[in-house]
């Protein structure tokens, strides 16, 4: 079953179109990775799902219903959570308060969920009273993901979760992404670290200049000559 689909999207800021006829799909239980060179429109594609920029053609479908150009506050309520690349935690709020804010739109008792999140991220449980701004980059990413998971979302959108992290933390974040996915949450993730990301991806899309270039399973793209030349060789 398809959880999220972008169908032939044109989108951009104001009149400047960045995405041209982009199509992406995330099926239930999948990790889908979007890679591509800088400026290819990877992050823009995520933002367009979240109503952060204007879609001029095509549509976004969440499960059965169309959510094209729905404002972010409502997209959250529909069960889509988005973790931006930077500025993704409230630095002056404690770890626990960040998680509570993640559950803001919930009106039921979210304490069991809080315990589950702490079980998933034991490091955070220890630091629950500390301001999120005092944590390391990797731990902040965990807070940001934990905060998004408080809603038990239908799908999680991650914008370059490993950007700016040391290799050690990068591996940890990819493991975490896999662990989150294992709890049944489909993930659509934009990544720069193409090789590692493809390693955990069920399927992947390569975007170039705001257009779909390649699509395939993780291993297929890892084996693809052109993809290898574009990202993997250069990256080392």
């Amino acid at each position: 079953m398809t959880v999220l689909a972008l169908e032939h999207i044109d989108a951009g800021y104001g009149d400047t179109a960045i995405l041209h006829d982009i199509s992406l799909q995330v099926e239930r239980g999948e990790i889908v990775v979007v890679i591509g060179p800088n400026g290819a429109g990877k992050s823009t594609a995520l933002k367009s799902v979240f109503g952060l920029l204007n879609i001029t053609a095509g549509r976004v479908v969440l499960e059965e219903s169309e959510i094209t150009n729905t404002p972010p506050e409502q997209v959250v309520r529909l069960g889509v959570c988005y973790v931006p690349q930077t500025g993704n935690v409230f630095v002056n709020l404690s770890v626990q308060e960040n998680l509570e804010m993640g559950a803001f739109v919930r009106s039921d008792d979210f304490r069991p969920r809080l315990d589950e999140i702490y079980a998933m991220f034991p490091d955070l449980a220890e630091k629950r009273r500390q301001p999120a701004g005092s944590l390391s980059g990797g731990q902040r990413q965990m807070v940001a993901m934990g905060k998004a998971l408080m809603l038990e979302p239908k799908i999680l959108l991650l914008d370059e979760p490993t950007a700016g992290l040391s290799p050690k933390y990068r591996g940890e974040i990819f493991q975490t992404v896999k662990a989150i996915n294992a709890t049944g949450v489909p993930i659509l993730m934009v990544e720069q670290n193409a090789k590692q990301a493809l390693g955990i991806a069920d399927r992947a899309y390569v975007l170039v200049d705001g257009e779909n270039r390649h699509t395939g399973t993780g291993p297929e793209l890892l084996a693809d000559q052109e993809v290898a030349r574009m990202f993997l060789g250069a990256k080392g």
Binding site: V76, R77, P84, G87, N92, E100, M101
Partner: peptide, 23 residues
């Protein structure tokens, strides 16, 4: 309180507050 924490959250980052679904 929930609304008070949300006030601090908006003070911290209005953009993130919106993405989090805080009205």
């Amino acid at each position: 309180t929930k609304i008070g924490k949300a006030m601090r959250a908006v003070s911290d980052s209005p953009e993130l507050a919106k993405l989090t679904g805080i009205p």
